[in-house]
Design a protein around this nucleic acid. Structure first.
Lengths: 80, 80
DNA sequence: CGTGCTATCTATAACTG
DNA sequence: TCAGTTATAGATAGCAC
């Protein structure tokens, strides 16, 4: 029912933080996947859970390393 | 009005692809930011536009390199 | 390239099993 | 922990500027 409006600040209770992390992390990865398919672009997402576990997404079955290599080698004029 | 239900496949027209990329990329970065604040976790997002331009997000004002270093050095038991 | 609108679709907080 | 439910808040497609 989405009772709490959800201010954008750290969730203090560890349990709630873990639950929210799990759900929102799935949503984030889903959005990344959709964007990569819809627009045919390379995307990489790296996320560490509150307990330090890694989750990752890399588009087009590319290895994460391949995308990070493209990131590292990108010329300046294509950066923000 | 969200007329097209939006199947999950590449948008064929370049212009539409660029517009959708721009909008959804903003949404993705926003979600990543929210997750990093709400759950106090490190997140990195790297995204290349249809024209090859880079957008990136890294949480907590950490340099992207710092997060990618954590990624590279993470022990296997914390990986998926 | 953006920004604003808005009807509709999607994600999700709180809850239950 | 972990999946499902449901009422809401949030995101966004198509359009106009």
């Amino acid at each position: 029912m989405n009772r709490g409006k959800g201010k954008l600040e750290k969730i203090e209770k560890l349990f709630g933080r873990q639950v929210t992390y799990s759900k929102r992390k799935n949503g984030l990865m889903k959005k990344a996947h959709q964007l990569s398919v819809l627009c045919d672009v390379q995307i990489a997402v790296v996320s560490f859970s509150p307990s330090g576990r890694l989750s990752q997404f890399s588009s087009h079955n590319k290895r994460m390393e391949e995308i990070l290599e493209r990131y590292a080698n990108l010329p300046d004029y294509l950066r923000d």
